[in-house]
Design a protein around this nucleic acid. Structure first.
Lengths: 149, 149
DNA sequence: CCGTTTTTAATGCAATTGCATCGATGTTGA
DNA sequence: TCAACATCGATGCAATTGCATTAAAAACGG
């Protein structure tokens, strides 16, 4: 027996549409700034930042994956590219030969730092200029509810 | 003279991170439902829905592009694929040989309809269950501010 | 202890996306 | 009117992503 699906409310549908479009718009604007400045994409930045925050600049791929929500196979290949650029290196995980540790290099830290000057300015321009801190707090709270179990 | 960039506030940075992650999470969940049901991706749905809403089920590629925020070249090729599946067809634009009209077919309308039963249910599960209508309204308002000039 | 299951990361191949540019029309302004 | 210039959509090619699967190592269960 097939239950008829109750229609989502107009308010919810509108919010969902806006979420997708807002994300696309702001990511697009910020990526454009990074590209104009000759930097790699936000994905690279995300990985660099997570690593920098990790203990001794190291995390396992799984930990990065969970933090940035990339697919395992995409992260694996992104790390290939980043390693080739000398931004990270792979080191063995003590006591478990399946795992590995990804370590950010000095060059990686330097890139993260240089990217932040552009990225931070873009955030100012495209987000801070549009929302007060109070509104940003409200937005955070709502988005948190959205992803919680 | 290089002005030092004022750091974005913690509240803004947090909201931005949550926006990206919430979008990734919810899109991921919804896409998984669609895939499980054997349907194409949300991008296809977005185009079908826009067309269905357009006058006589027709829009120019530019109009679709503006509505869904895809890149011109990506949309061009997405329409190729959709046309190949018989979901849309390209017809000449009267009075301007550069443009064209994309028209949704009956088959396209039918697919949109069938996808909605899964998509709507997923929205219920992943959004309505997490936010009240009032909260959805607040979220909409904040996201709108974010993208406005 | 050993067979089974789970976890972790990599990879071949197909599909999609990004980038740059093109060709065809339309539009504009001297 | 006609030479810029702008708009619209397509496309070659490279880069990235998605999908399915693999290999290796660890954890588990009897």
């Amino acid at each position: 027996m097939q239950e008829p699906v109750p229609e989502p409310s107009a308010a919810v549908i509108r919010a969902w549409g806006r979420l997708i479009r807002a994300e696309r718009t702001v990511v697009g604007r910020i990526e454009a700034e990074l590209k104009r400045a000759g930097f790699p994409s936000l994905h690279w930045y995300d990985v660099l930042l997570e690593l920098k925050r990790g203990p001794e600049g190291r995390l396992t791929p799984r930990e990065i994956e969970e933090a940035v929500l990339f697919e395992q196979y995409n992260l694996s290949r992104l790390l290939d590219r980043m390693e080739k650029e000398g931004l990270v290196c792979r080191i063995p995980f003590p006591g478990d030969k399946r795992r590995q540790l990804i370590e950010i290099t000095e060059e990686g830290k330097a890139l993260q730092w240089r990217m932040w000057s552009v990225y931070g300015a873009a955030i100012n321009r495209f987000i801070s200029a549009k929302l007060t801190d109070k509104e940003a707090g409200q937005l955070s709270a709502l988005l948190l509810k959205l992803v919680q179990e």
